[in-house]
Design a binder for these strands. Structure first.
Length: 866
RNA sequence: GCCGAUGUGGCGAAAUGGCAGACGCAACGGACUUAAAAUCCGUUGGGCGUAACAGCCCGUGCCGGUUCGAGUCCGGCCAUCGGCACCA
């Protein structure tokens, strides 16, 4: 198809309807208490992961998820829900700032321009967003509340007794700063010289920055941290109740990395001090022949005797010089140094050497381990290299080689637990250690506290000032804290934040100065979905009533309006009902947002403890060559180019027709043409071109009864499309509508009733085309109410699918041998009789004995013979 | 190495344990046209077979199992993609 000639005049009808929707505020969802709000309707909150407005503009990956949610939003409106379907901009953060630096313009300008471009593009696709709820995280009216939430986090602590966050006032200790959920700590951070900032663990991939791919090194710095580790247990546990892809749940569980085990104390020889190690295999304690400390372990300085000092110092320097990148690359070969000190194994009473090695991480557990070379792969490698003793204490149940056996088996050479299987041995040795006061049960997590400050300009300033070396929070009334207008906002490279350059701004009072760091990109996206509920509220981050309505579960009626199908409907227990976005946020945004949400929930601001009830990940769209879309391959598809040639409706439908939403799939321009052809057929089913070349309502459209066959296809389509939208199987819904259109294209006249049904079903997918055709039908077949979107969703009536006769399959030994039309009510006995009398069946069973006849009414008969 | 997802025509894909390949693309043939485009109709997994129909056999990554019957369920492998990766 040459794009020169439009398959139908989408270039006129699409802008027309987009303008109308805007003028009529067609998709505005009023809040409780506002004019037009209908409390009788249940709510449905369907959310996209909002984009960060990069300079590249929209690519075809964005609208894939957006189209899916738009179809659901439009469908749910038909179904009588109050639908909250908002969009906004994740406009603070590194990508926006990197783009500004690249183009030499202030991020405020580039951000504004990029948002404008994104907005134009999204509007051109015809999404039914409530644009009156548009928000931008870099807008002071928005980040004022981001800062406010930070204050709530800063002003609370996690009470281990209650398992919840509480106001800091309930903390009875004398140093509240030591327990705040937001705190300052001197930690070894991920410093990225190229970006001039520190990064969170989650933002570092293989020793490089996620943004830009620049090397990252370890470096001790004083930074703001959020105590996400306090929530580790709940972040794992409460995943359970969520309707999320199992893979994403697993990713989060693994990232949090819970392990059960024990902490065991080793008495240091010639010292009062004890050395505590963490292990998941306390049952192997008798095989512990040495200890290893991480090079950064605080006891290293204490225990190393004079004669070993030099060597240990050399090793530590060498270890800290290694970047994460190097550590990752030269993984295998282990290194270490003997500390010169010894400790007592509490099980054996033996003196074991203490080593220092960087295969032990300072940030996990206690930063020290007991080396059990016989039953741990890493310890074995280390022990072999440095010639340390190896003692077998577990044998495999199958009688295999015990040395180098890392699994669960039977304890041996371990008097206190001799002969016990691993699980029991663990329990018993822990009890044994607890009795002697030299150990206890313990749980550890891989998850570290969230490094929350950045040395960048384009982010939220902290509502914090420093005085005499101590931090204080600013009052909620003083918000927003607006960053100073800086001409030179580039990173300094030294680790000093760019805000330091604004000398006036920094000076808060005679004695106090402002915090110079800014918050990371994720801050805004941690709560933006809450702001959408009440985006213009100047008094509160979200009003109680709006939060309860849109995010809540039982305070308002939620009964699903009776679906005409028996499809399983997803039961919501509150929060966002459907959240669609890419997998790349599996452990970043989705973990951080859950954490903030739980803190706000604990403090009594929210009705649910989880933000996103149902999550769906859309798959990546590849280029036509099957490679990832990238400038480098020249295979990037611009949505606006596609829309110019085929229209927004064709673009939307193609994105949905490509294949299952969650699957990775390649783009195909000829595929777009196919879908455009389908829409053009819908157009010509309704419209005819007259002599003057104008489109008029086709005379073949008539007010006539549907034939039985037509009724069947209409109702089959209602059923299929309805069920498929509920299951997000949009590709098969479109396929069914194609079957519908193909069937009616060949008929001489088109019943207006059938056409109307199709237009409603098609509306969520191709809203412009269906609206236009509906309106045109009204010229000759007036109907009230007038608009397609005011119609009820068609009801599927099973009686139209029922037939008098049904075709059944005749099989012999599982192979199809014939087809037969029988009355619908044929009994099993009748079917069996018919089958055995069938000539072709008889041919295949001739000379054989019939052993069995399987009869499935309305389906098949299988004759088993040999 | 560990964890997860996915393997079906030339391509994107579809199939409550019951006719594998719906729907679309591409290709081929035909109608319309002076012609082309557009549109409409038809054919299209592979093989054997027939003058033509018919008919038969094989076929969902590989091997095995359960079942009257397996793309679908179970066990074991292989490949691709994604995540984690010295977490004791």
């Amino acid at each position: 198809m040459s794009p020169g000639r439009k398959p139908y005049p989408f270039d006129q009808i699409e802008p027309k309807w987009q303008k109308l929707w805007e003028e009529q505020r067609a998709f505005h969802a009023p809040n409780p208490g506002e004019p037009g709000f209908d409390p009788a309707r249940p709510k449905y909150y369907v959310l996209d992961m909002f984009p960060y407005p990069s300079g590249a503009g929209l690519h075809v990956g964005h609208p894939e998820g957006y189209t899916a949610t738009d179809i659901v939003a439009r469908y749910k409106r038909f179904r009588g829900f109050n639908v909250l379907h908002p969009i906004g901009w994740d406009s603070f953060g590194l990508p926006a700032e990197q783009y500004a630096i690249k183009t030499g313009q202030h991020p405020e300008i580039t951000t504004r321009e990029n948002i404008a471009r994104f907005k134009t593009q999204l509007k051109r696709i015809g999404f039914s967003y409530d644009w009156e709820r548009e928000i931008s995280t870099a807008d002071p009216d928005f980040y004022r509340w981001t800062q406010w939430i930070f204050l709530q986090i800063y002003q609370s602590w996690f009470n281990p007794e209650t398992g919840r966050a509480e106001p800091i006032a309930t903390f009875e200790g004398n140093d509240p700063d030591s327990v705040r959920l937001a705190y300052v700590a001197e930690v070894a951070v991920n410093w990225c010289p190229e970006l001039g900032t520190v990064l969170a663990n989650e933002e570092v991939i293989d020793g490089r920055s996620e943004v830009g791919g620049f090397p990252v090194v370890r470096r001790p710095m004083r930074q703001w941290m959020l105590r996400i580790t306090a929530y580790a247990e709940r972040l794992i546990e409460e995943l359970e109740q969520l309707d999320w892809p199992e893979g994403i749940k697993l990713l989060q569980r693994n990232w949090i990395g819970r392990s059960e085990g024990a902490e065991i104390d080793f008495q240091i020889v010639g010292s009062e001090k004890k050395l505590r190690v963490f292990t998941t295999r306390p049952d192997t304690l008798y095989g512990g022949t040495y200890l290893v400390l991480a090079p950064e372990h605080p006891l290293v300085d204490v225990i190393v005797p004079e004669e070993q000092r030099d060597e240990v110092r050399k090793y530590r320097e060498q270890a800290t010089r290694k970047s994460d990148l190097e550590r990752a690359e030269l993984t295998k070969e282990k290194t270490g140094v003997f500390s010169g000190a010894y400790a007592i194994n509490p099980a054996t009473g033996e003196k074991v050497p203490i080593w220092i090695a960087d295969y032990v991480l300072s940030g996990y557990g206690t930063g020290a381990i007991g080396g059990v070379p016989a039953h741990d792969e890493r310890d074995l490698e280390f022990a072999r290299k440095y010639d340390l003793p190896i003692r077998v204490v577990v044998r495999p149940k199958d009688g295999g080689e015990p040395l180098g056996f890392f699994g669960e088996g039977i304890a041996v050479n371990s008097p206190a637990i001799e002969g016990l299987p691993t699980g029991e041995a663990k329990r018993k040795i822990i009890a044994w250690l607890e009795e002697r006061g030299s150990g206890k049960r313990a749980i550890n997590y891989k998850l570290r506290d969230w490094l929350f400050s950045r040395q960048r300009y384009w982010g939220e300033p902290f509502p914090i000032v420093w005085e005499n070396g101590r931090h204080h929070s600013l009052s909620a009334e003083s918000l927003p804290i607006v960053p100073p207008p800086l001409a030179d906002y580039k990173p300094t490279g030294s680790g000093e934040p760019p805000l330091a350059k604004a000398k006036e701004w920094v000076r808060y009072s005679e004695t106090a100065t402002r915090e110079l760091n800014t918050m990371p990109q994720w801050a805004g996206s941690c709560w933006y979905y809450l702001r959408f509920c009440d985006p213009r509220n100047g008094q509160r981050f979200v009003s109680e009533i709006a939060e309860r309505y849109w995010m809540g579960s039982d305070s308002f009626p939620k009964k699903e309006i009776a679906a005409s199908t028996d499809t399983e409907t997803h039961i919501s227990v509150g929060g966002v009902d459907l959240y669609v976005g890419g997998t790349e946020h599996a452990v970043l945004h989705l973990l951080y947002a859950r954490f903030w949400h739980k803190v706000l929930f604990d403090l009594g601001y929210l009705t649910t403890s989880e933000p996103f009830q149902r999550l769906v990940n859309q798959g990546i769209i590849l280029g036509e060559d099957g490679r990832k879309m990238s400038k480098r391959w020249g295979n990037v598809i611009d949505p606006l180019d596609v829309i110019a040639d085929y229209g927004a409706d064709a673009f939307r439908c193609y994105e949905m027709f490509m294949g299952p939403l969650e699957q990775m799939k390649p783009w195909s321009m000829t595929g777009v043409e196919g879908v455009a052809r389908f829409l053009a057929r819908v157009w010509r089913l309704t419209m005819d071109e007259n002599q003057a070349g104008q489109w008029i309502l086709s005379p073949t459209v008539q007010e006539i009864e549907l034939t039985r066959a037509q009724l069947k296809i209409v109702h089959a389509t209602i059923k299929k499309v309805t069920e498929d939208i509920e299951n997000l199987s949009f590709n098969t819904a479109i396929a069914q509508m194609m079957i519908f259109v193909n069937a009616f294209t060949t008929s001489e006249s088109v019943p207006v009733l059938a056409l109307r049904t199709l237009l409603v079903l098609l509306n969520p997918f191709a809203p412009h085309l269906s609206s236009e055709l509906w309106e045109t039908l009204g010229e000759r077949f007036p109907i009230s109410p007038h608009g397609v979107t005011e119609q009820p969703w068609p009801e599927f009536a099973p009686e139209f699918l029922v037939e008098d006769e049904v075709e059944i399959v005749l099989q012999v030994n599982g192979k199809v041998r014939d087809h037969l039309v029988v009355p619908i009510g044929a009994t099993e006995a009748e079917l069996e009789k018919i089958a055995l009398a069938n000539e072709r069946v008889r041919g295949f069973i001739a000379g054989k004995t019939v052993r069995k006849v399987i009869t499935i009414p309305k389906k098949l008969v299988n004759v088993v013979a040999n």
